[in-house]
Simulated scan of single mutants.
Amino acid sequence: MGSRSSHAARIPDVDSLRRETGFSQASLRRLYDRFQALDRTGKGYLSRLDLQQIGALAVNPLGDRIIDSFFPDGSLRLDFPGFVRVLAHFRPVDEEEEGNRDPKEPEPLNSRMNKLRFAFQLYDLDRDGKISRHEMLQALRLMVGVQVTEEQLESIADRTVQEADEDGDGAVSFLEFAKSLEKMNIEQKMSIRILK
């Protein structure tokens, strides 16, 4: 039976991760346990296959895109710090913590803008900084499946892009995306109580 302090010592760069992600040391310990449970073979990193074993991602229509977000730049391995950084986007916003933030510090990973950036990249498949009609259509196909006709999907994609596209270039930039969602409580919708 190991002590809590020796357990924390196994977590790579725990103090830096705490500052960067906002997770408490106890939360990081639980996330580390989850990381190790997903790493069934003990290789010290996670692969796409490891994440595909998570039931909630397996049934999520955007599951593959969410899994892709754990592997930026086409990497094949996900270390613990990378795992925690992605999960930090889904950490609920703490109003008190937000009010006491030093403006010189980087914006927290769970801030509204970072949550929006994360959501935007789920749609911007070619990473060109814009969501095209084609990319919107692909996302809609994943989300609604066969419940809607192709013609209806195309109409929804056209209308969605047209309503958000303020500069008339036929695509949605990040700023247009953020503006179109300004009335949505993204902090609530993109928060998961990962740990109590």
Rank of each mutant, 00 (worst) to 15 (best):
M1R: 11
G2N: 14
S6T: 15
S6E: 15
H7Q: 15
A8N: 14
A9W: 02
P12G: 12
D13T: 11
D15E: 15
D15N: 12
G22T: 09
F23E: 03
Q25P: 07
Y32W: 14
F35C: 11
F35N: 09
F35L: 09
L38Y: 02
G42N: 04
K43R: 06
G44L: 01
G44R: 00
L51C: 09
L51W: 01
Q52R: 08
L62G: 03
L62H: 08
G63Y: 03
R65M: 01
R65P: 00
I67R: 04
P72M: 03
P72S: 03
G74P: 11
D79T: 05
H89A: 10
H89Y: 07
E96K: 15
E97F: 07
E98A: 14
P103S: 05
P103T: 09
K104G: 03
P106L: 09
P106N: 09
E107Q: 14
R112L: 12
L116Y: 10
L116R: 07
L116A: 07
R117D: 12
Q121S: 08
Q121R: 13
Q121N: 10
Y123P: 00
D124Q: 01
D126K: 09
K130S: 07
I131Q: 03
S132N: 06
R133G: 11
H134L: 11
E135S: 05
Q138V: 11
L140D: 04
E151N: 06
L153A: 11
E154C: 09
D158Q: 14
Q162G: 05
A164T: 08
A164V: 06
D165C: 08
A171F: 06
V172W: 03
F174E: 04
F174T: 07
E176Q: 13
F177W: 04
A178N: 05
S180M: 10
E187T: 15
Q188P: 02
S191R: 14
I194R: 02
